[in-house]
Simulated assay, not measured.
Amino acid sequence: MLNVHSIESFGTHDGPGVRMVLFLQGCKLKCLYCHNPDTIDTAGGKEYHIDELVKMAIKLKPYFGKKGGVTVSGGEPLLQSKALIPFFKRLKEEGIHTNIDTNGRVLNHFSEELIDKYADLVMLDVKHMTEEGYEYITGQRNKETTFNFAKHREASGKAMWLRYVLIPGITNTPNLLHAMGEYFKEYETIEKIELQPYHKLGIHKWEALGWEYQLKEARENTKEEIDAAKEILQNYFKEVKVN
């Protein structure tokens, strides 16, 4: 069984091609800019049997084409790694491309088996390049968990994309972008980095939960700032995409 928050049938921003996207319930981080804060609490969600989800994926398979498939996001999907192993195994048997969108904080026996054997692609969210910045954004310490996860994926030789949210003055500064590029420039498994310009579309969800949204003062990026960030990162990565 998987505890699922919601399912999107025709996702186009969660990996290659057209995808069925499962947003799982539960996350140990509470990122200041989270646009799905209702997925954070591990309580809630709806239990789905793996057979039911596999049937959904098979029905959608004609729409996937050569590139599409199934992406599991969250929340943090690797909190349910043990249940995801048989799910991804079944999808692989059906010839369906599998992708995990993760913050990289869960690296244990189950998550390693999942990403080593059954995840065709991993999309890793890099929150910040400094410990202070990581704690400010996520509410948790130890940014090294993300980088340990990246090292593990690199060692597997299997495809990885990075994702990075651009917040003016917080994550979108030249020194941080160069630091990220320098850190990952020798990685051979990274196919691209996706930049997510900061937006405030999730504020109403925070308010509905009775939580204070702490980035109200942050502004959205200008086109010039986004272009400048892309230009910096193009020195380090094969492909830089702005979502």
Rank of each mutant, 00 (worst) to 15 (best):
R219C: 01
K185F: 05
L201Y: 07
A159F: 05
V165H: 05
Y48V: 06
A155Q: 15
G44F: 08
N99G: 01
G26M: 07
F23M: 06
E154P: 10
Y187T: 04
I115G: 06
Y213P: 03
I203D: 02
R19M: 09
R219N: 04
R141P: 14
K46D: 09
E224N: 06
L53K: 12
L79T: 03
E217I: 01
V21E: 02
K238W: 13
K200M: 10
E182A: 08
P197Y: 10
L177G: 02
V18Q: 04
M160I: 08
K66G: 08
V122T: 13
N142G: 05
V106P: 10
G95T: 15
E217C: 03
E194G: 08
E8S: 05
D51N: 12
S111I: 09
A228Q: 04
E8Y: 06
G95K: 15
M180G: 02
E154I: 11
F110D: 14
G26I: 05
L124Y: 12
A57G: 07
Y198H: 15
K59M: 09
Q234G: 14
K230I: 03
E135H: 12
E191I: 00
N36A: 05
N142C: 07
Y136D: 12
S6V: 01
T42A: 14
F23E: 08
P16M: 09
I115E: 08
G44E: 10
F10E: 00
Y136C: 11
E144N: 06
E212W: 03
A119Y: 00
T189I: 11
S81R: 03
N103G: 15
T12W: 07
K28V: 15
N148F: 11
G65R: 12
R19I: 09
L53N: 11
L233D: 13
E113W: 00
G133V: 10
G139Q: 00
E94D: 14
A83E: 15
F110A: 09
W206T: 02
L162R: 04
N99F: 05
H178I: 11
K143C: 08
H35I: 01
K223C: 00
C27A: 06
H152T: 13
P37G: 12
K61F: 04
N36R: 02
L121G: 05
Y198S: 14
D116I: 07
E220T: 13
L124F: 14
K28F: 15
E191A: 07
C31Y: 01
L114H: 10
L2V: 04
I232N: 09
K205D: 04
D38N: 07
P86G: 04
V54Y: 11
T71F: 06
Q80F: 01
N108Q: 15
P16Q: 07
L2D: 01
L29K: 13
E112P: 03
W211Y: 14
F147I: 14
I85S: 03
V240E: 13
W206F: 08
K158G: 09
D116R: 12
H49T: 10
K92C: 09
Y63D: 12
T222R: 09
L22R: 08
